[in-house]
Write a protein that binds this DNA or RNA. Structure first.
Lengths: 262, 262
DNA sequence: TAGTGGTCTAGACCACTTC
DNA sequence: AAGTGGTCTAGACCACTAA
């Protein structure tokens, strides 16, 4: 026998999935459910808290509890990095960081700050630098419309980007073609990359920034970008709301027996 | 000001991370903390529940609350599919589904059941079949030692595997080289694949099976495996404890302007 | 039987929003 | 001021484990 709060949460979740409670709609007030005999206030509240941790609803004091709009899952494939998009295209800004969704870019969908700092441990390791070596950090919060989707922090080695518009501290997108185009213009054409993904609980800051429910999880993505000769020209950390994305990768089955020896 | 239960949870989490409470060790009993003035039983319990949802501890009635052993993060890269391992090697079983960890395979680290069934929607879509078409499902629970790490369900088209040892309902691994070797022997050499990842809350069944804490998340991985001519020979769904794995993918930056036209 | 975590209640009070 | 969700308490009781 599942606990009462779990049963209530499941019942409400079911009604949300069937559309009986539509996106944006208010769930019954806690005190109403108490009066309706669903249990004490604590019990009903526990159910609501579970729904929030599952990303189904958001609660706020004074307002109430509303069913969260479930934006369609974004599918991120490697074609989002297509050279043609940032090298030849004339689309504005950070295309590679967005999903090719057919929507045209809106101003204000990205905020960015650039700063020079001592490399954190992970960054230093990615660039094979000493831990106190200077790097540029470009922090962005990417939105789609008014809804934040993920954060992305790119790190660069000073000698790769000094003097480019990437380190111009003016807020706003990096300009036509985004960061990869800037690197390309500076003589560093990106060639291959590695992405590493892991999931973890969101920090309180991330919960606020990405408008998550308490207890929701995020996926942290580490991207290391190389030129053809193996130089690391960008290391980036993305933090994505775990429920809102899916990643897909296509690759050939490796065969170490057929690799050409060096 | 964070709530009392959150502050207590953070304090305990900090002590776990610094090793003051070591893996396998018991946390103070709830009633002891109540007596120590950390709050009422409900408050302390809320803190413990948060720690459990974050994967730091496991609680059980009658026993107590112990710090969960944090196995080193498994890094899954595409080299785990190396043809040399399952085609030429003489290692036993399902190498492709395990991490190359240097440990030798132990018997009993995998349980499997094979059944013939009507294709569920996702599976039918992956194979481009009708929804009621028959497929073989091979369900496995993969363990490392006594600790379950993930589940993996592989689906096959009957005409690809009928008569092979893959559909032999005898429990146990699929034999030398695992499923890919069986397909290879049957004339279907795997060539490339697609993996798609997304995170979600664990179902109660998964929570029990994978020994998760209540409220922990899982990563669901969908693997579609193709032969060189584009035939889908396997579709597999893996469910992994989100905290215990990291996935990494290496790939070349695509350039649609340079693709050879067909 | 004793001790553990888990559930549930009734009620007080707090923080925040809207009117 | 009224109404919302959120926190906290004290205590009763339940489910499970071990000796």
């Amino acid at each position: 026998m599942a606990p009462k709060w779990r049963e209530l949460a499941d019942k409400l979740a079911e009604r949300i999935r069937t559309g009986e409670y539509a996106a944006g709609q208010q769930l019954p007030h806690i005190r109403d459910l108490v009066e309706a005999g669903e249990g004490s206030k604590s019990t009903v509240h526990a159910a609501y808290k579970a729904l929030e941790a599952e990303g189904l609803v958001t609660s706020s004091r004074g307002h109430g509890t509303v069913v969260r709009r479930q934006p369609p899952l974004k599918r991120l494939g490697i074609t989002r990095y297509d050279k043609a998009k940032w090298r030849d295209g004339d689309e504005v800004a950070f295309i590679a960081d967005r999903v090719a969704s057919g929507r045209t870019h809106q101003r204000g969908e990205q905020t960015q700050t650039v700063s020079r700092m001592a490399a954190p441990a992970i960054v230093a390791s990615a660039f094979d630098l000493a831990e106190d070596a200077p790097v540029y950090a470009r922090v962005r919060l990417i939105k789609e419309g008014s809804r934040p989707t993920h954060t992305l922090t790119s790190y660069y080695r000073p000698e790769h980007v000094e003097g480019t518009r990437l380190v111009d501290p003016t807020p706003g997108p990096a300009g036509r073609g985004g960061g990869f185009r800037v690197l390309y213009d500076a003589g560093y054409e990106i060639d291959h990359m590695r992405e590493e993904l892991r999931a973890r609980v969101a920090t309180p800051e991330e919960t606020a920034l990405l408008q998550l429910g308490a207890g929701e999880w995020v996926v942290e993505l580490h991207r290391t970008v190389y030129t053809a000769d193996g130089t690391v020209v960008e290391f980036a950390v993305g933090v994505h709301a775990a429920t809102r994305f899916a990643w897909s990768y296509d690759f050939a089955v490796p065969d170490s027996a057929q690799e050409d020896p060096r």
